[in-house]
Amino acid sequence: MTPKTSRRVAQAIITFLFIYLATPIVVTIIYSFSTSWVKSIAPAGLTLKWYGQLVTNPEFTTALIRSLGLGLLTTVIAMICFLPVVFYANVYSPSVKSHLRFITVLPFTIPGIILVTGLIQLYANLPIPKILILVLAISLLSLPMTYQALDNAFIGRDFRAMFEQALVLGDKPFTAFVKIIIPNIRAGILVAMLLTFTSAFGEYVLTNLLLGGNFETLKIYMFRLMQSNGQASSVLTTIYFLFLALISLILIIIMQRYSAPHKSPKEVPDH
């Protein structure tokens, strides 16, 4: 195969894959705009009626606020837990990283459904608010994503020198960290926060089983609508998809803008 034909083949494969993965989403989006779609190749007509109905429904607003809140809290907790650790591991003690690696396979060995079993056994009868346990557990399950995104942020620059210079100049470690390190890895932090937020925003298994459906988040609302009202559910699925698309777009923009430092050689700190 010449490079040119192999490139063509590659493009064809990716296009095919893309169509395969996107078809259910595209059909759902069209369905959400259609008046009805029974025994025909195309929908009977197009309408925005279903959007109006869903968005003005107070149940939707409440569910949305709950999911946003869960996402924000989780993101904050994940950052507090991991930002110092990833910084320390990268700058002072790379050997810690091999111990942290267990976290990256955690969702595979102990997925949500297994973790929730242990959580219920332990906390079901204890007088601790379940919502607190939920937020902590979701933070734990999103750690792999947070960890990898933050870890990438430390590639290719000498943060130890920067940090120690700040210490020599009289900053306290915490101040130095906030003033010197955070601004330099802000793109990485932003990526990590967006990914953590997204995974918490769309959490279902833990929320549903731990709180027994009493705390209706967007996903649980989506599941309930799915049983009763196909049109409303297709609208909600479309909105959820648009949310994911928006986050992806932001991630792509960040990556395009900040991908340069990864390729440049190590920056030499000027002493």
Binding site: T23, P24, I25, V27, T28, Y31, G202, Y204, K219, M222, F223, M226, G230, S233, S234, T237, Y240, F241
Partner: peptide, 11 residues
């Protein structure tokens, strides 16, 4: 998860 399952049911 739920959105995928629903999309496949629609399809």
């Amino acid at each position: 998860g739920v959105p995928l399952a629903f999309s496949l049911i629609i399809l």
